[in-house]
Write a protein that binds this DNA or RNA. Structure first.
Length: 432
RNA sequence: GUGAGCGUAGCUCAGCUGGUGGUAGCCCCGGGUUGUGGCCUCGGAGGUCGUGGGUUCAAGUCCCAUCGCUCACCCCA
């Protein structure tokens, strides 16, 4: 038997409802915040990711699905969405249509990591990107949007953590200060941190190794080293969030794994997902558009891990069972033939109709109808066809309730009659 | 890439120190008088015990290897 690829998974019909619900709620919410959907390919030229995410990040170094196509061009299954969206933003000169662009996208991402709770090799993200506004308003709006998304989905148990990473003007000085702090403790750092302290010492701050935590304990905070602009920007973001009623915690140790972030950075964390505590993350990336050859464009964005979000959700929610509006129980060949016509006619008119495709006993057809959660069953056999009348049974009626069923005339209006009956009984008031 | 735990029916699992695979629960299928579901009841289907070696008179059980899954490190959503 050929089995699914490690770290990939099927979402079966029994589990799909939550996914659809999340997507529907997200689409609606994003629309009301003025974000437009954009869809970009799941493959890009490898170089795009190397240049945006950072060549010496873990993602690019060892996690990407990269291969040469038949003509030798190096391609990569996207490990995240921002790079592709930025590429599209530049390629289609979207800033010329409107210098302010609010975009969202959702879909699968690919990273070849060892699978774990909340971590898959193909996983889905919901992304929002806000281009063209340098003011803290953009940061605030994006973080608020993310907060509202959790709110709408009634996901509690997540806390927003926020930090500022500074900008090219002030980060070098901070790195210097951090390195000075660490210089006396180099031999205490884990192997990994020792190696990368030269290239990206900030990563030491969020290393979980006890010795690194100890070494970073009294490290200077970026917050104290921000330039005037970054400092004021950061303060305005925090103030704005408070004003919008978005709860958050400052975290001086919050660092992100992608190189393009500047200034505001944030993560929505939970304790409910084992070691994978980040449900969403993002930040400002003012330099990225220009770095990829576009116009100098400030931007902020986030990504939500849809798989993780759904795991949080499924612990709480149980989607209601759905079933056909009407089930046609047909006895005999003639009835089945007619029943099939009625069924497809109903389906064409937006009524979910089912029948039993094998000729089983009425009893087993009723069982099947019940199991499928059908609301009505129309029972049709040779006698009914002869007499031109059939029984329509409401399945919510109890077993012995004779008022739970009524006679229906088998005439040319049958389908319309059935539609009317279904509409009358619909709890939603008539719309399927 | 490293480490740990686990692989018995479609699913959840029993199976004690080796001695013929469970009347187990759920699910599925069919009955319970002639054409009415849920509950109940009776019956049925379904497994080369992940795979390959080894030890033994005898291996689901012990040993080795291998594959798979899970969790953790790492990393991030």
């Amino acid at each position: 038997m050929i089995k699914i690829i490690k770290g990939f998974r099927d979402i079966l019909p029994t589990d799909i409802l939550l996914w659809q619900e999340v997507e529907n709620i997200a689409r609606k919410l994003f629309a009301s915040f003025g974000f437009c959907e954009i869809r970009v390919p799941i493959m890009e030229k490898t170089e795009l990711f190397a240049r945006s995410i950072g060549a010496d990040t873990d993602i690019v170094e060892k996690e990407m699905y990269t291969f040469a196509d038949r003509k030798g061009e190096m391609l990569t299954l996207r490990p995240e969405a921002t790079a592709g969206v930025v590429r599209a933003f530049i390629e289609h000169n979207l800033s010329h249509q409107d210098s302010v662009q609010k975009l969202f996208t959702m879909g699968p991402m690919f990273r070849r990591e060892r699978p774990q709770k909340g971590r898959f090799r193909q996983f889905s993200q919901i992304n929002a990107e806000f281009f063209g506004v340098a003011a803290p308003f953009a940061d605030i709006l994006v973080i608020e949007l993310l907060h509202r998304l959790f709110d709408e989905l009634k996901v509690t148990q997540v806390t927003a953590r926020i930090n500022s990473l500074g900008c090219p003007a002030c980060r070098p000085a901070y790195k210097q200060a951090l390195l000075e702090h660490l210089s006396g403790k180099m031999e205490n750092l884990c192997e990994n941190c020792c190696r990368r302290s030269a290239t990206n010492p900030l990563r030491v701050l969020d290393c979980k190794s006890p010795s690194c935590i100890e070494a970073a304990k009294d490290a200077p905070a970026m917050r104290e080293h921000l330039c005037d602009e970054c400092s004021s920007h950061y303060r305005q973001v925090l103030d704005g969030l408070a004003r919008q009623g978005v709860p958050f915690e400052q975290d001086d140790k919050l660092v992100r794994g992608l190189d393009y972030y500047t200034k505001t950075t944030f993560e929505f964390q939970t304790t409910m997902l084992g070691a994978q505590n980040a449900v969403a993350g993002g930040g400002r990336y003012d330099g990225l558009v220009a770095a990829l050859g576009g116009p100098e464009t400030p931007a902020v964005g986030f990504a939500v891990g849809q798989d993780r979000l759904i795991e949080l959700l499924s612990a709480v929610k149980n989607p209601p069972p759905k079933g056909p509006d009407i089930f046609l129980a047909c006895l005999g060949e003639k009835a089945a033939l007619l029943g099939f016509d009625w069924m497809s006619s109903l389906c064409r008119q937006g009524i979910w109709a089912e029948m039993d495709y094998s000729s089983k006993s009425l009893k087993s057809q009723m069982k099947r109808a019940d199991k499928s959660n059908a609301r009505f069953v129309l029972m049709v056999g040779e006698n009914e066809i002869k007499e031109g009348r059939a029984l329509l049974r409401r399945m919510t009626a109890s077993r012995d309730d004779t008022t739970g069923q009524e006679e229906i005339t088998l005439d040319g209006n049958l389908v319309d009659t059935l539609i009317k009956k279904v509409a009358e009984s619909s709890p939603a008031g008539g719309k399927g």
